[in-house]
């Protein structure tokens, strides 16, 4: 006669443990977690000039600011989004109007704007970017340059519908 007690006890223990685990929330079913929106950085909005014009290039150029704009959740690239860029550069202070310019993202949600070389100001070599538009919540970024000699800087936006 086969001994069925042991397998039965194992089955009960295993199913009990599984039920406990499921109830505890330690194990969650696989689901699309989604891309979290980018939070605004401290000081990101400083010297922002709402509505700065879309430009081919800020000043004489020589430095590249680039990045991407995606939608929170599914991460879909967002074309045609307006990004304002400004910094303290070799051609002016952050507060100066001519230090500001905006650009639009392309079909892949990417943007790239040439501007004058960013130089350290207020203790750090940094740039400023703002997403400005109606469809999504406003986000201000303040990325730092690894070295003040860098000639490019990247910043990436994940936007949350407004």
């Amino acid at each position: 006669m086969p001994d069925t007690r042991f397998p039965r006890r194992t089955l009960l223990a295993a199913s009990g443990a599984a039920a406990l685990l499921a109830a505890s929330g330690l194990v969650v079913p696989a689901r699309a977690k989604g891309l979290a929106p980018t939070p605004t950085m401290r000081g990101g909005a400083n010297n922002y000039r709402p509505g700065a014009p879309i430009v081919e290039r800020i000043g004489g150029g020589g430095f590249w600011m680039s990045g991407s704009v995606r939608r929170a959740g599914d991460g879909a690239p967002l074309p045609g989004q307006r990004i304002q860029i400004w910094a303290h550069t070799t051609e002016g202070h952050e507060r100066d109007w001519h230090s500001h310019g905006a650009t639009l993202t392309d079909a892949d949600g990417l943007f790239r704007l040439e501007m004058p070389q960013i130089v350290p100001a207020f203790g750090q070599a940094h740039g400023h970017l703002a997403y400005e538009g109606d469809g999504f919540k406003t986000v201000f970024l303040r990325p730092l340059m690894a070295s003040p000699k860098d000639t490019s800087l990247e910043a990436h936006f994940v936007l949350e519908p407004a």
């Binding site: 401290r42 400083n46 202070h93 203790g123």
Partner: peptide, 23 residues
């Protein structure tokens, strides 16, 4: 002088919300 150069950066320092610890 810093205030004249960039008022919002100095205001952030006084409100203890500056991104730069040195300030």
């Amino acid at each position: 002088g810093l205030w004249i150069t960039s008022p919002p950066d100095v205001i952030d320092v006084f409100l203890l919300r500056s991104p730069t610890p040195f300030s």
